[in-house]
């Protein structure tokens, strides 16, 4: 039979197999190289003291203790601000505006655009608005607020998805019971939308923690232990950037910090996918 398979076809299939496997191998190789490199160089430097000690000699030696603290504080600010606003907007979009109303369309469109805006632009905005106009200066507070602006689109979008996933029958049955809209939202919809919300939250945190560009000129560079929210603090990603670009001989610690950052992110992403599955399961049980 083989002779009837025209030759070019055979060749092409063979070529395609080679191409596809080649591409996959290339991608895997590059990525393993990258990850391996970071783990290899970073692992030897990580220890408990590295995580807790303050940096010395512009970060060439010492640890990343205060930097971790600043990072957490920035994240904290970011979340306290973005969570209520995000949920509020999502409720508004999902429950009080129809798909086709002008307001809903405009808000949704601008959220889509906003999600694609480069982080550096958020940085610019944060610098102008929070640091200068509101007079917060280079501080953890302005950094956190800027990140909050950045995270909002993601948060709103996935929370809205969560709300939309709630079956309409819930709404109808609560309405049939004569409950008010607010009661419905608080007692029925919010709990049901929690999985979507959590996923959005975790994704947002992931994006925030990885962010560098938006923070450079909002939260500042100072690497000592922050004393208040108005103090300038250095986030982990900025630390890596600074060590590798501006401090000669800081590579080793940069690698170690990078590893810490990657591990943090992995943990966060892991939580996200775990939450997504868990949320789905629970929904399946309750419905």
């Amino acid at each position: 039979m083989a002779q009837t398979l025209s030759r070019p076809q055979n060749l092409r299939e063979w070529f395609a197999v080679a191409l596809v496997w080649g591409a996959a191998a290339l991608v895997t190789a590059v990525f393993c190289w990258l990850l391996g490199d970071i783990v290899w160089h970073g692992l030897s430097h990580i220890s408990w003291t590295f995580l807790t000690a303050p940096p010395e000699n512009a970060g060439r030696r010492g640890g990343i203790g205060p930097i971790l603290v600043s990072t957490c504080l920035i994240l904290g600010v970011c979340l306290t601000v973005s969570l209520p606003i995000g949920i509020g907007t999502a409720v508004l979009l999902a429950e009080f505006t129809s798909d086709h109303s002008l307001f809903g369309r405009i808000t949704r469109r601008s959220l889509d655009v906003l999600a694609g805006v480069p982080s550096i632009v958020f940085g610019l905005f944060g610098n102008a608005f929070f640091c200068k106009t509101l007079g917060l200066g280079f501080s953890i507070l302005s950094g956190g607020l800027t990140l909050a602006c950045m995270v909002l689109p993601i948060l709103i979008r996935s929370t809205e998805e969560g709300f939309r996933a709630v079956p309409t029958s819930y709404r109808l049955s609560t309405a049939a019971l004569g409950l008010s809209r607010t009661t419905t939202i608080v007692h029925i919809l919010l709990p049901a939308a929690v999985p979507g919300l959590l996923v959005g939250l975790v994704l947002g945190v992931g994006r925030a923690i990885a962010e560098t560009a938006a923070l450079i000129f909002t939260s500042g560079y100072v690497d000592r232990m922050p004393e208040s929210l108005l103090d300038s603090g250095r986030a982990l990603s900025i630390h890596i950037f600074d060590l590798s670009m501006n401090v000669s001989g800081g590579d080793a610690n940069a690698y170690a910090s990078a590893l810490v950052l990657v591990i943090l992110l992995l943990a966060i992403n892991g939580t996200a996918s775990w939450l997504a599955t868990y949320g789905l399961q629970r929904k399946a049980v309750t419905v």
Binding site: F31, W33, L34, D37, I38, G206, I209, A210, E211, T212, S237, I238, I240, F241, S244, M245, D251, A254, Y255, A258, L261, V262, L265, L266, I268, N269
Partner: peptide, 17 residues
């Protein structure tokens, strides 16, 4: 996993390697 790695880390690798 790679989709989640922050850009600074890519930058670091690019700079050093």
């Amino acid at each position: 996993l790679l989709a989640g790695i922050p850009s600074v880390v890519y930058g670091l690798w690019g700079l050093v390697v």
